[in-house]
Design a binder for these strands. Structure first.
Lengths: 161, 161
DNA sequence: CTACACGGTCCTATATTGCAACCAACAAGC
DNA sequence: GCTTGTTGGTTGCAATATAGGACCGTGTAG
């Protein structure tokens, strides 16, 4: 699906499989703009400064991947717009995590250009972070990653956390 | 920093700035492996099936970006290993969000190869998701994204959410 | 002294991206 | 009815990045 030399889609890892859909340079920025209300070709193009043929490719990939869908623009309008599907909207945690990491670690001198908020209060959204079964924020060292049963083994076996 | 045609690093948007560090095809998979304990060049190479020169580039970029650092492997050992910095470890929410999205929407027929857990209980980590100031899980429609004061305006002005 | 593992570098072929030109469909102005 | 401009693309070409394999210097094992 993604147009690169080596596809991740046959990998079993969910991260790789996700990146196969949204891992190319512009995909997540297109999704970000879609979440902020961009719907038309020109919106993405003008806002991102992306080349038109590249944008065409990315949009087609995202539609094919079920993240965007083409919908009629409205009564009387002839063109179609690009709208996020539920699948696409559920990428919000990824977008939020990226934005918050960037705010903390590689902030622009002028501050962030986008603020993610709790609509009800207008306040800035709290940091998205792993939580345990009780909803308590966890230290990262308390998060484990292990191979699933039946998964191909890792190569490095010197130690296990 | 990242070696692509057009750099995102001068964009004000935090998402773009983050992607400038981790947006290339392999970066996030390298970080995933590092989180699972990979430390040596060969670990990444064998596990990912990435070309060696590409791996060299990506590792150098990540070190330059402060996400990995080279550390002496240990007493008596001559080589250096790649270890996540705090900056790198804090990408965990991104990795988790990608993994959980993939598990839900593009799962492999054999199931996930990696399971992310709460170490204390061994249970699967709950879904990482935006929460309000009280720690309550939010509906995505309750999350707002708006331009910061002073940010360049969006091009599309037809509607505001 | 020889062989091999490790962590690279260098070269070439292919794939992807950026850029600019071009184009068809439609709308607005005159 | 004709011209112009906007939109949403497509097509070529040049530049860049990736995959793959050959090669290499250092260190270790035998």
């Amino acid at each position: 699906m993604a147009m690169k030399t080596k596809s991740f889609s046959n990998m079993q890892c969910s991260i790789a499989r996700t990146l196969d859909h949204v891992g190319s340079w512009w995909s997540l920025l297109i999704i970000r703009d879609a979440m902020m209300g961009a719907r038309r070709f020109k919106h993405f193009q003008e806002n991102l400064g992306i080349a038109k043929n590249t944008l065409t490719s990315r949009l087609n990939d995202l539609v094919e991947g079920g993240i965007l869908e083409k919908v009629p623009a409205g009564s009387g309008l002839t063109y179609e717009e690009y709208a996020l599907t539920e699948r696409g909207r559920e990428l919000a945690p990824v977008i939020i995590a990226l934005a918050q990491w960037g705010d903390k670690w590689v902030a622009h001198e002028k501050g962030p250009s986008t603020v993610i908020t709790v609509k009800a209060s207008g306040e800035q959204l709290p940091r998205i972070w792993p939580r345990d079964e009780d909803g308590e924020v966890m230290a990262l060292r308390a998060v484990g990653m292990r191979r699933a049963n039946g998964a191909p083994p890792k190569i490095w076996t010197e130690e296990e956390e």
